[in-house]
Structure formats: C-alpha cells, structure tokens
Amino acid sequence: MKQSEPQKGTSMVDLSPRPARPFSRRLFLSGSAAGALTLGMAACGSSDTPTPATGASGAPTSGAAGAGFPLTIEGAEGKAIIPSQPGRVLTVGFMRDVDEAVSLGVVPIAITPQTNFDSGLAPWVEAKLGGAKAPQQIEVEDNLPFEKITELAPDLILATDSYTLADDFANLTAIAPTLSYQDDVAEDTWQTRAKRIGAALGKADAAEKAIADVESGIAAAKDRNKAALEGKTFTFSLLNAEGELATVVLPTDASARFLSQLGLKLSDQVTSLPQAGPAGRAVVAKENTKLLDADVVLFSFRSEDERKQVEGDRLFQALPAVKRGAYVALEVGEALSLAFPSTLSIPFALEKIVPKVVAAATKA
C-alpha cells in the first residue's frame, strides 16, 4: 500500500520539496519528511456523530439557488464545478480531507488510507465516527487506482491534502469534480482547508463554526496556561532517515507558529542554524546536541528503538532541560496530530499533548 507522501509537511507553511511518487505513507515521518513537525492545539468543533455523505453550502463562487449550488471553487490545480450538493464523497488526500469531511458530519464513501495508523484511520477520526460505519479504504500502489475510483462513482473528490495532485488532477476531474488546495498543499492554512471543504460539501456555516470553536480553544489554552508558557523557549526535533538529529529552525514553521500562539518562542540557538534537507529544518551534529536545549525540548519518535537511541545518548541526557524533566517525547501518531492540523486533529493535540508541554514548561 504505497502512495506518495508529504514532504512539505504542514498545512501552515512548510516549503520542503515534493516527494517522488513511490514514497510510502508509513515512512512519512522519516527522512526528509522530518519536515512534518508542527504543533496544533485547540478545542473541538462540531461534536455530532457523522452521517453518510450528504450536505453542503456555498462559499468561493456560487451559481444559482438551492444550497449554494451549482458551485465553482477555484484552486491551484484547477476549478471544481459542483452541480449539486454532493452525496458520494471520496477523498484522496494524505489526512486532512478525511478529517474535515468527518468533522462536518460527512462520511466519505471511500478514502485512501491514513497508513501511519494500523486501522487506516487516525484516532481523532475514529472517535468522531463513533458508531457510524467507517469509509471503505482504497488500496494504493505507486499511483492512484483511477479505475477503482471510477467504479465507486463519486460525485465529489476531495484532494486539498494531496501531494501528487499536480499529476493527478486531470485524471481525477475527468471522474468527478475534484477540490484542489487553494494555493499550495503545504501553504494553505487549516482554516482555508476547512472553509473550502465546507463550501464544497454545502456545509459552509458548520465549517465556520468549527473553525471558530478551534480558534477559541487556542485562545483559551493560551489564557489558561499563560503563567507556565508565556515567554518560554522550545525546540522541536526528530531523527531523519540517516539517523541524524533534525530540528525546526523557522519561526514561520507550523509548529513554531502554533506554539507561539500559546506564548512560547522558538529558541534563538536553532533559528540561526543553516537549513538542510526539508526547508525549515536543520541537521544538528551529534556533538552539537547542546544546541537543542531550551526551556522545553520536544522530540518525536517513530519507534521505541529510536527513542532509546536518543534518550540513551549521554549528550542528550546532559541537556539541562532533560535533566530537570522539561522534555516531551511524542509518538508518531501524536506528532501527526501536530504536523497536520485540522478541526479534528487539533482538539486531539490539545487533549493529549498540551498538558505534557505545560508540565514540562513548569520545570523550566
């Protein structure tokens, strides 16, 4: 089950190059995909259990009456002309197309699996589905199975989170209206993605509410944790495919931007490092591990072996932040909730990760 994976990494500005098509989803957080470190925290949007795909209201450019349909939505790869409210929605994006559809109460008829998770679905999606039937998962090799997608007869394809859409758009739009990202798959904010999907599904108002709820949650988290987080520095790192330390160096990176919304600041020790590999990341030589020190040190691991490798190193153990317990270790699933913020993944990050960050910051 292989499909091209994101190396641009985040929904909120990460400028790494696009991957070659055979790059496996399960390898997303390895190698140059180290760029996918971003911390998104906020409160939940809609809490209703999703129902099978139906429903939506307009936004970008709409035509006649009804629920805002027919509707035309412009995108970087082309326009989606949606004649009527979709009833059979299919997603081919990495993660966030599924997130936003399910967040709005729409269960796609089929999805390309979220293969970093054993079930093919992120835990925040499973939680939202509740007792609703999960969408069918389409097996993917080096290319999307266009014949299979045709057989499923979708009337809307969501692809705002597809890292191969430039190659696939013509084939997909020949099957059904296909929703592209607005500017770039890695540069569209989670708010932009949610609004576009909400419009395409005829659920523009629900999307606006979900966005408002999440943004309110961010503000509430900042206010609630101001004493612990305000002005504290952080670094956020992982091991790349070569087993080297890779760390976020751009304040405009999604992780840095999100944490800054909570009052934290990316450490000056890393912002001055030269970028290497994915844009916005630097490789730190083992002997320079001390550069990763900050009030809070975050590290993401794909496996227990990786965690043992890093935590067992004497230079890492010598970091003042590690010594005083101001260190946060994240599993790959947690890291993905940060790397790809959506109206579903952000509440998950708020619940699972923010308390760890706050606990670490109190030891600074």
Rank of each mutant, 00 (worst) to 15 (best):
D268K: 15
G333K: 04
T362A: 13
F236I: 00
G333E: 07
A339W: 02
Q317M: 04
V270Q: 05
L344C: 02
A361C: 04
V270A: 06
S272N: 13
S267L: 11
L330S: 07
D293M: 06
A318E: 06
A254Y: 12
G333H: 05
E311Q: 14
Q269T: 15
L344F: 05
D313V: 03
K323Y: 09
L238F: 04
A329K: 07
S300Q: 11
E244F: 04
F258H: 15
Q269W: 08
S260V: 06
L298G: 03
A360V: 06
Q275R: 12
G263S: 11
A276T: 15
E311S: 11
N240Y: 03
F316S: 00
V283T: 15
T271A: 10
A321W: 09
F234L: 11
A285M: 12
P274I: 11
S255Q: 07
L259M: 14
V354M: 14
F340T: 09
L315M: 00
N240F: 05
P274H: 12
L266F: 14
G280P: 13
P320E: 02
V310C: 09
V328Q: 03
T271Y: 12
I353G: 01
L315R: 04
L315S: 01
A241Y: 12
F299Y: 13
L344M: 02
V328C: 04
V296K: 04
K356D: 10
E351R: 12
P251C: 05
L291A: 14
V310P: 09
L264C: 06
F234C: 08
R302M: 01
V310E: 03
F234S: 03
S300I: 04
T343V: 14
A339I: 01
V270L: 06
L262H: 10
L291N: 09
N288L: 08
A241S: 14
L315T: 00
P320R: 08
N240K: 04
G312V: 07
V270R: 09
A285C: 06
V297L: 09
L238R: 12
V284L: 08
Q309E: 10
T343W: 00
G277M: 03
A359I: 08
A349C: 05
L245Q: 03
S337G: 15
L264I: 10
F316L: 01
L262Q: 06
K363Q: 11
T252S: 15
F348N: 02
V249G: 01
T343N: 07
V284N: 05
L239C: 01
R307T: 07
A321R: 10
A329L: 13
A318V: 02
L330G: 07
A285L: 13
A335M: 13
E242T: 09
V310K: 07
Q269C: 08
L239R: 00
Y327H: 13
L273C: 12
V357R: 04
A246F: 00
R257P: 03
E242L: 08
A359L: 07
Q309H: 10
P355L: 06
G277Q: 02
P251D: 04
A339G: 15
S342E: 00
E331T: 15
A256D: 05
A285Y: 09
E311I: 04
T271N: 08
L266T: 11
V310I: 14
V354G: 01
